[in-house]
């Protein structure tokens, strides 16, 4: 089973790994993939923004670090690069700046620990992935995040791996439920109508909110952010087939819409990508039952889920049970890279 995960990524050049929460064991998965790729692929590594410090600020668990092989290419902010202990050859500067300095591309001339702090904008992430490939990376791994802080989306990668773990809750049922729902959100359908995608892209270019109507005409509405735009949504819903929303779609927004109108029946709420959906399961189900539809412009290709049955806070699940229960509930391969399954 263990080698299967490498098999799964065989056909993709850019793979992002995103965690359901901190300490779910995402770095372990990344290290596992890196060790499996050793001698097979030249890897390129970067991350979406910066994912915490060496010690988790809240829980003070030492976090595992990423250990790479000689010849690996990394794209990381200058400050993070100098914290890495590989012997480093500078191969490029990017002109992309982060709070930790410009993102620098370096080649590891020795094995060692690296600290990743990549771009936080999708466009930059794409550029950097392409650059890493252009200078010789066979695969690019993107240490991703599933949070509101970064704009950059794992949707730019060709494949995505979701990491879940016992840290979510001491109650295994709750963890399984949350994981299954997250998978459901992440795999929300892509809008297939090309014309709609073209119009939606135009809306997203300049606005936070827009509508596409029955006849195909569309318009944008000026709002500061879509988060508080329920009033504008309700006002423009008449005859709309699509509501196009840039940025996060929150639970509150959907609830506000549902309590103000029932005209959203059969209307598609179109998000940029599934990581922008921050909605509770209950709200999601209520919305769907009432006839509301969620779709995305840029789909995420979720290829598998990895589990970590151990919580660094001191409890653990039965690894086999966790794995098997999730396998039952998901249509995706599920792996425990620590336990060896």
């Amino acid at each position: 089973m263990r080698s299967d995960i490498l098999d799964l990524i065989k056909n993709y050049r850019t793979i992002s790994i995103i965690g359901m929460a901190k300490n779910v064991g995402k770095t372990t998965v990344l290290n596992y993939l890196i060790s499996k790729a050793r001698g097979i692929y030249t890897l390129g590594l970067t991350s979406i923004g910066r994912d915490g410090e060496e010690y988790d600020q809240v829980s003070f668990f030492p976090k595992p670090r990423i250990y790479v092989e000689e010849s690996t290419l990394i794209a990381t902010a200058k400050e993070a690069l100098f914290r890495s202990d590989i012997t480093k050859e500078i191969v490029g500067t990017t002109g992309i700046y982060t709070p930790m300095g410009e993102i620098i591309v370096a080649r590891a001339l020795s094995d060692g620990y690296v600290d990743l702090a990549g771009p936080s904008i999708t466009k930059d992430l794409k550029r950097i992935s392409e650059f890493l490939i252009s200078i010789g990376a066979d695969k690019v791994f993107i240490d991703g995040a599933l949070n509101r802080k970064t704009q950059a989306s794992p949707a730019v990668s060709e494949a995505t791996i979701l990491s879940t773990g016992a840290i979510l809750s001491p109650d295994i049922e709750k963890t399984i439920g949350e994981t299954v729902f997250t998978v459901k959100l992440l795999t929300v359908q892509k809008e297939s109508d090309r014309e709609v995608i073209t119009k939606a892209s135009k809306i997203l270019e300049n606005s936070n909110l827009g509508f596409i109507y029955e006849g195909g005409e569309y318009k944008t509405v000026e709002v500061l952010t879509a988060i508080d735009a329920s009033k504008e949504i309700v006002e423009n819903l008449n005859g709309a087939k699509y509501v196009v929303i840039r940025g996060v779609i929150t639970d509150k927004l959907i609830n506000d819409v549902m309590t103000s109108t029932d005209r959203y029946k059969g209307v598609v709420f179109l998000a940029e990508d599934a990581t922008k959906l921050f909605i509770e399961e209950e709200t999601f189900l209520k919305f769907q039952k009432a006839g509301g539809i969620f779709r995305v412009v840029f789909p995420i290709n979720l290829i598998c889920v990895t589990v970590n049955p151990i919580s660094p806070t001191g409890y653990r699940y039965n690894g086999k049970e966790f794995l098997n229960r999730l396998r039952e509930k998901l249509d995706l391969p599920v792996f425990d890279v620590m336990g060896g399954d």
């Binding site: 200058k78 690069l81 100098f82 480093k88 500078i90 500067t93 410009e102 620098i104």
Partner: peptide, 8 residues
């Protein structure tokens, strides 16, 4: 100077 500066 650091490595990136020498590089540039």
């Amino acid at each position: 100077l650091d490595e990136v500066e020498f590089y540039e």
